[in-house]
Design a protein around this nucleic acid. Structure first.
Ligand SMILES: [Mn+2]
Ligand SMILES: [Mn+2]
Length: 501
DNA sequence: GAATTTG
DNA sequence: CAAATTCAACGCGAC
DNA sequence: GTCGCG
């Protein structure tokens, strides 16, 4: 049943809106002279409001698509709160910020003749009636469906009966043919005289994905807009996708921009991220299904959902229990000068050289650097993590003034924490060429060993200047990355550690 | 951002 | 219909 | 057991 007039009054501030305040009409009208009105309302979504006078108020339904003269076209009509009779002649603009803000015109009005007792028929959920308006005529039926709409809103259907006023939709669309107000001749919505002027479209299609809120600024520091971030990711997709393909991915999303709420997302079961791949449940039986980005469309789909950062597992989905790389995440005390960070990286690389392991360096886009070591997918997570921990402890033992293998800010005072914990099953590390959700939108960028000494910071590249670097590159900074390496007994011995199990 | 619930 | 609310990870090590 | 971390 519809909400009463008090609901109408509660939703409106009559000091601000020009709409009439509501009071039921005391005088009981003659049942043969009931009025109806259809208002066209250019609110958030353009729709038509059908209002039938009954019991001194206007019973009201929102009809998203408006009436159709075609009896085969059933039009959804969501019942809304009763409106006062005086609302029937309201035409004008509801101010922004008010309930139902937007322009209203009286699209049609006249008399409705119920075929039966209207109170009884209304209560029964099936109103059959004849309209005598300026545009609409003939017999109509308004019938309540069993399905409730959102909340307690009742869903009805507005259907034209077959009579001499009926016309097939292919032949004639009355909302299209007669868009204007019957009071003023004014138009509203996309039927405006100059339909939606020169305003840039709010949504754009990129790589087959509709990007909504394309103009939303997601980073104040760089002024980057949502569409620009999507275009950036598209422009570097040939560099980024090889690091995303074939492995589980987690997303850091910030739909309102990096200064708004941020959250991590590891699965995509409830809401569909366009084109994203759902991985087999058996890969991680204790959790919801993991996801994977294998294509440009999926990447752009993720951006549409507000994704800024992409984090990947250190294993591929087809062999998920044996990592194909491990990470040494060098996290400096923020107070340390960049020079100390560079020296620490060189020292760690020297040890890896001693071990016979080739490592690949990337900026984190945050404070530190990431060393990535490709593996032959032979050892399990526990083994690989223990090995990374052994390196961290070995470095700390050798150079306790520079390094720590113990997490926590207190232990990191003046030092660099070698974060080996990224190498646990289920953990992830920001992918090479992922943007970071920080002011200026820095990017995690692979660099060659030769370039390392000249690095000026972990945020040297951002969405604004990465293109320039990539275009100027002579060769692949990570040449040889495809060479997978095995951990040997000799390496464990050198580190003074033993392989678990 | 999208789905769901509330008014 | 419009507005408000809800949800979108997880395990590890330090203490 | 809780907390902080990424
Ligand atoms: Mn309306
Ligand atoms: Mn780090």
């Amino acid at each position: 049943m519809a909400k009463p007039l008090s609901e109408y009054n509660r939703k409106r501030d009559f000091k601000i809106t020009a709409e009439p305040s509501g009071a039921a009409s005391g005088a009981q009208r003659n049942a043969s002279a009931l009025t109806f009105v259809i208002q066209k309302h250019d609110a958030r979504n353009l729709h038509y409001d059908l209002r039938l006078e009954l019991d001194g108020v206007l019973k009201s339904w929102a009809v998203p698509k408006g009436p159709s003269l075609d009896p085969s076209q059933k039009r959804l009509a969501v019942q809304v709160e009763d409106h006062p009779l005086s609302y029937g002649s309201f035409e004008g603009s509801i101010p922004a910020g008010q309930y139902g803000a937007g322009d209203v015109i009286v699209w049609d009005r006249g008399i409705w003749h119920p075929h039966d007792d209207p109170q009884t028929a209304y209560a029964a959920g099936k109103l059959e009636f004849t309209l005598a308006g300026e545009k609409l005529s003939g017999d109509w039926v308004l019938v309540r469906t069993h399905l409730k709409g959102s909340g307690d809103k009742e869903r009805w259907l507005l259907i034209k009966e077959n009579d001499r006023h009926a016309r097939p939709a292919s032949d004639y669309d009355i909302t299209e043919a007669q868009p204007q107000s019957v009071l003023s001749g004014a138009c509203v919505g996309n039927a405006r005289p100059t339909p939606a002027p020169q305003k840039t479209a709010a949504s754009v299609t990129l790589a087959g994905v509709q990007i909504t809120h394309a103009e939303r600024v997601i980073d104040l520091a760089s002024g980057t807009r949502k569409l620009q971030l999507a275009q950036f990711y598209q422009s570097i997709s040939e560099w980024l996708l090889p690091f995303l393909r074939h492995r589980p991915v987690s997303l850091l999303r910030a739909p309102e921009g990096i200064d708004g709420e941020q959250f991590f997302q590891k699965h995509s079961e409830h809401l569909a991220i366009p084109h994203i791949k759902q991985l087999d449940q058996r890969l991680d039986p204790d959790h919801a299904r993991l996801m994977q980005i294998d294509s440009l469309a999926a990447l752009i789909g993720a951006v549409q959902m507000g994704t800024v950062e992409l984090h990947t597992w250190g294993a591929t989905s087809d062999k998920i229990e044996t990592p194909d790389l491990f990470v040494l995440d060098l996290d400096p005390d923020p107070a340390l000068p960049w020079k100390a960070m560079l020296e620490a990286a060189q020292l760690t690389l020297s040890v890896l050289d001693e071990l016979g392991l080739q490592a690949f360096v990337k900026t984190s886009g945050g404070k530190g650097l990431h060393l990535m070591i490709p593996l032959a997918r032979r050892d399990d997570w526990a083994t690989v993590k223990a090995f990374a921990k052994a390196i961290a402890q070995f470095m700390t033992q050798r150079l306790p003034e520079r390094f720590t293998a113990t997490s926590g800010p207190k232990n990191r005072q003046g030092k660099i924490f070698i974060d080996y914990l990224r190498n646990a099953r289920g953990a992830s590390t920001v992918a090479a060429y992922s943007v970071r959700a920080r002011p200026g939108l820095p990017v995690s960028v692979p660099v060659s060993r030769e370039e390392l000494k000249g690095l000026r910071g972990a945020q040297q590249w951002t969405v604004a200047n990465l293109q320039q670097r990539l275009q100027g590159l002579k060769g692949d900074p990570w040449a040889g990355y495809a060479n997978r390496q095995r951990l040997s007994k000799q390496m464990w011995d050198t580190l003074g550690a033993t392989q678990p199990q």
